[in-house]
Design a protein around this nucleic acid. Structure first.
Lengths: 113, 113
DNA sequence: CGCGATACCTAGTGACACGATGCCTCGGAA
DNA sequence: TTCCGAGGCATCGTGTCACTAGGTATCGCG
């Protein structure tokens, strides 16, 4: 099932920060990881993810570095910073609050007229 | 705790449709209800909610009618339509899928480096 | 050699929540 | 009586942000 893209607003940095809190990853790998972990629900295009990475880096949440694989491919890896970890904590709490509030509304019994 | 407004994208119609599936409400009342049920997390301005109501009405999800209270105040009530109920079912399923996918990512163990 | 996958990037567009603003009524306080 | 806050409706402009479309380059394989 596909998801209305509007629902994604603001959640992509949360997802990115979380995955990078585990391991350094490069952009393309991040896209594939998000697709895999979400069992196909998230299918981000590169035009979506790269700008997010750049802005997170600009804001000091991530640090980027180039590494060349054995096969000679250049890859730009991203590592989370301390600031990024703090941001992740805050965004995770926000996410819980937000979904809790929505679920509270959805828990209201509806009238099947 | 306040929530990043970006998270709200796309969820407002879901919340509105859900509340209106219980009872006909007028716009101002809807704002107050959402604030109350979410225990203050959602505090929508009128500039936010009225356009949502109008577009839902335009799309046939809602039907609007005027009613005058005993004190003479004119209020514009909104009633959900059959089409709106079907939309609500779909959006609710989308919401579950979406939050399930995000939570799946967040459930990944993180490395506290 | 061509093509798909890998891997990076940017610019323009469009959806949409929000703040600001405007109009009107009512009740109570100054 | 005048004013102000709350109730009640509405629209417009702005800013954020995901996405489509486009561009470059390398690699492995048929």
């Amino acid at each position: 099932m596909t998801v209305d893209k509007q629902l994604l607003k603001g959640t992509i940095p949360l997802l990115v920060l979380h995955l990078l809190a585990r391991d350094d990853l490069y952009g393309y790998q991040l896209i594939k990881s998000l697709e895999q972990v979400s069992t196909g629900v998230f299918q981000f295009s590169e035009g979506t993810l790269y700008p997010v990475l750049h802005s997170l880096e600009r804001d000091g949440m991530l640090r980027a570095y180039w590494r060349v694989s054995e096969v000679g491919r250049k890859r730009k890896y991203y590592a989370i910073t301390d600031r990024g970890r703090r941001e992740l904590t805050g965004r995770t709490a926000e996410w819980r609050t937000f979904t809790g509030a929505v679920d509270a509304v959805l828990a209201e019994e509806i009238d099947h007229g």
